[in-house]
């Protein structure tokens, strides 16, 4: 499964034949985790990341978060010729897997305690937004911008 996922992210697999990966990603946390790891690897393999100095620290930070998985993969990378394979499906796959990953996260992470913040006076806006976000008939999804915690 992980090899298939790796191929998918590298643009080597045919999107038409990968539906089971998405389904699996939705049902198990393992694939979602693997996706995240391979995503980091793929990012590192793409040369343009290295020409952006500010990206290096972020990638290094992510590498330090994933020491077990990345160490063996790094060795494998040295024998693989690094060339970019532009594939029009890659990002749609990323989007799909990202969505699947999100579902997986809910299965894995039960809600933990949320930081207490003073409730703003415009709190009815939050209700209106939640209504528009989750009601079955809504023409208004594109007028709202998510109020994101910490913003």
């Amino acid at each position: 499964m992980k090899q298939q996922l790796s191929a998918l992210i590298d643009g080597e697999a045919d999107i038409e034949r990968c539906e089971h990966i998405f389904l699996a990603a939705k049902s198990t946390g393992e694939v979602a985790q693997a996706w995240q790891e391979y995503h980091v690897i793929r990012d590192v393999m793409r040369e343009e990341y290295w020409v952006q100095p500010d990206m290096t620290s972020r990638i290094m930070a992510e590498l330090s978060d994933e020491p077990v998985v990345l160490a063996p993969r790094a060795a494998a990378q040295s024998v693989v010729p690094i060339k970019s394979r532009p594939n029009k499906y890659v990002w749609s796959i990323a989007a799909s897997v990202a969505a699947a990953f999100f579902v997986g996260m809910f299965v894995l992470n039960q809600p933990s305690t949320v930081d207490s913040v003073q409730i703003a006076d415009s709190e009815t806006d939050q209700y209106v937004m939640a209504h528009h976000n989750y009601s079955p008939n809504s023409a208004t999804y594109y007028i709202h911008n998510v109020t994101y915690a910490g913003e």
């Binding site: 990341y49 990323a94 990202a98 976000n133």
Partner: peptide, 16 residues
């Protein structure tokens, strides 16, 4: 496919 900006981190909105 979305217009991906590779220089930005992608985060999930997990309020729901």
């Amino acid at each position: 496919q979305p217009k991906i900006d590779a220089s930005k981190p992608y985060v999930m909105d997990d309020t729901t």
